[in-house]
């Protein structure tokens, strides 16, 4: 890589962003870890006093009888007590059936949705790599789901999965009222939204394969399958790995779709890790436990990410 002469200017360019990211990610994560080993209790001590009402210029306001009017001022003193409870929250994690179920739900979701998106993406990319009627128009239509607001998508699919006369009602499938089907429905929505992304990336990668190479390969391999297995697939492998890991990291965050589509149910059948942690922290206000939960998720992501970056480093070489 050719570079400019090194001057101190490079730090002026880099540091604002670096410091920003450090402040806004490392600090909350450390804070979160601290929270997870504490029990936080907040109380307010409140007293009320009557203070004279003042007008804009600072003079007391008088009532009809000429007496100064008063208003109530609330004095607050917030008292937070932090008790160190060690790893109690992490022990709770290990015994909490809701956590076990959330891990199971998230895993099934990731393991079914992501490979399906990859396979469908590759198939569609191969299809669109042919000469087609209105090819670029159709390709543009396929793009639309990628940026559709996920929460809106969740609500929309509720109307599509509506079992009493919705557009898929003729299938007679309990899309949202049966626990297994509900999870499948959530997966289906994610497949709808993210297959186009996989498709687009694979199409780009296919079009990056040099024509000469393809011509040469066609001479050698007899069948279409041979061509795919021996030439195309190996050429796509680096892209597949990247898309796979990107999708894994994203899919683990699953939140918006169950929020809108199923509310995490029936029961806890579609309650993902993110959903559970969110509810625990911001609906039950059990802050420490929610922090412990999200750390558990973070660790799972880290394991995947480690894999991810080794590969990504290679592609950056």
């Amino acid at each position: 890589m050719k570079t400019h002469r090194n001057t101190k200017a490079r730090f002026v360019f880099l540091l604002p962003a670096a410091v920003w990211v450090l402040t806004f990610t490392i600090f909350p994560l450390v804070y979160s870890l601290y929270l997870s080993v504490h029990k936080v209790e907040t109380k307010m001590n409140v007293s009320r006093e009557k203070v004279p009402m003042l007008d804009a210029s600072g003079n007391p306001v008088l009532d009809a009888k000429g007496n100064p009017r008063t208003k109530i001022k609330i004095n607050r003193e917030k008292i937070s007590t932090w008790t160190n409870i060690g790893f109690t929250n992490f022990k709770r994690l290990a015994e909490d059936p809701q956590v076990h179920s959330a891990i199971k739900v998230t895993s099934i979701f990731v393991l079914v949705a992501v490979p399906s998106q990859l396979v469908l993406g590759i198939l569609l990319a191969l299809l669109f790599n042919q000469r087609l009627w209105a090819r670029s128009f159709l390709r543009a239509v396929m793009l639309l789901p990628i940026f559709a607001t996920p929460l809106a998508v969740g609500y929309l699919f509720f109307t599509i999965f509506y079992e009493e006369g919705g557009p898929l009602g003729f299938l007679g499938v309990p899309f949202l009222s049966h626990p297994d089907w509900a999870l499948f429905s959530v997966i289906l929505v994610d497949i709808w939204q993210w297959t186009p992304f996989c498709f687009l990336v694979f199409l780009a990668a296919l079009q990056g394969i040099p024509n000469e190479l393809m011509e040469a390969a066609k001479m050698e391999s007899k069948s279409k399958w041979g061509l795919f297995a021996n030439i195309i697939f190996p050429m796509l492998t680096p892209t597949i790995v990247i898309v796979l890991l990107l999708r894994l990291a994203e899919a683990i965050k699953l939140f918006d779709i169950p929020f809108a589509l199923t509310g995490g149910g029936p029961g806890v059948a579609t309650q993902s890790m993110s959903f559970l942690a969110f509810r625990t922290g911001l609906r039950y206000f059990d802050l420490g436990y929610a922090s412990a939960m999200s750390y558990c998720l973070l660790i799972i992501v880290m394991i995947i990410v480690t894999l991810f970056f080794r590969k990504l480093r290679q592609s950056y070489a």
């Binding site: 962003a17 990211v21 990610t25 600090f27 909350p28 994560l29 804070y31 979160s32 929270l35 990291a249 683990i252 965050k253 939140f255 890790m273 993110s274 942690a277 969110f278 922290g281 911001l282 802050l287 929610a290 922090s291 999200s294 750390y295 998720l297 973070l298 992501v301 995947i304 990410v305 991810f308 970056f309 990504l312 480093r313 950056y316």
Partner: peptide, 21 residues
Amino acid sequence: IWFLSQRVLPPVATVVPFYLI
């Protein structure tokens, strides 16, 4: 890659601390 790694951080991990901050 360090910049990149921020992207895979699950947002829910920072939701509670951000709320308090």
